[in-house]
Amino acid sequence: MSHFHPQPEWLTEYAAGSLDWPMALAVGVHLHYCPACRQAVQQLDAVGGALLEELTPMAVSAGLKASVMAMLDDVPVLPVQKTKAPDVPALLKRWVPQGYTDLRWRRVLPVLHEVMLEKNRDIKVALHRIAPGGKISSHTHTGQEITVVLSGHFSDELGMYADGDFILRTGEHQHSPRASQNEECICLTIVQGGLKVSGLLGVLVNPFLR
């Protein structure tokens, strides 16, 4: 059971499908761990279904039904049993087919490894692994940073976080995350608009975290 959740507006926008993809990914991963948010989204989905029925139907083109009906026999039947590695949220399976240990972790700092999932001009989606007791130098964000804990624990100036916790940091916060002493911590991190490292290591780390 997580203790840090996305704000209510995010859950609503998630159910409404209006949340941008990387944020929707973060919320979806959080849902994997959080029964309370899953139940909330289930209810918010029901609102979507009811609103759908409030719309004025629009006639589809004449041939559409016939062409769909003609395709039905070619649609593969859904395999009933889904394969499931219990530890990895379904949304991350594409990048983490076997588990976190088999990934190609790239060393960013002695205590920090990274696997980049997606990167473009304004957004970076990555997995981070912090070694037991590892501390990341203090940084602030020019945009926002979302972290969802996938395994282990970490803490910063504002709290202590475990599996599924959803942490949003913006320019207001300066923080230095630290993994717990007894195990490594793996997180999903989404950074929009970059971050600025303020500590001594800043000069070294900045080119990697940008």
Binding site: G28, V29, L31, H32, P35, R38, Q39, V41, Q42, D45, K82, P89, A90, L91, K93, R94
Partner: peptide, 9 residues
């Protein structure tokens, strides 16, 4: 993958 994310209780 989304179906699993939405997987109900």
């Amino acid at each position: 993958e989304w179906e699993d994310a939405d997987e109900h209780e």
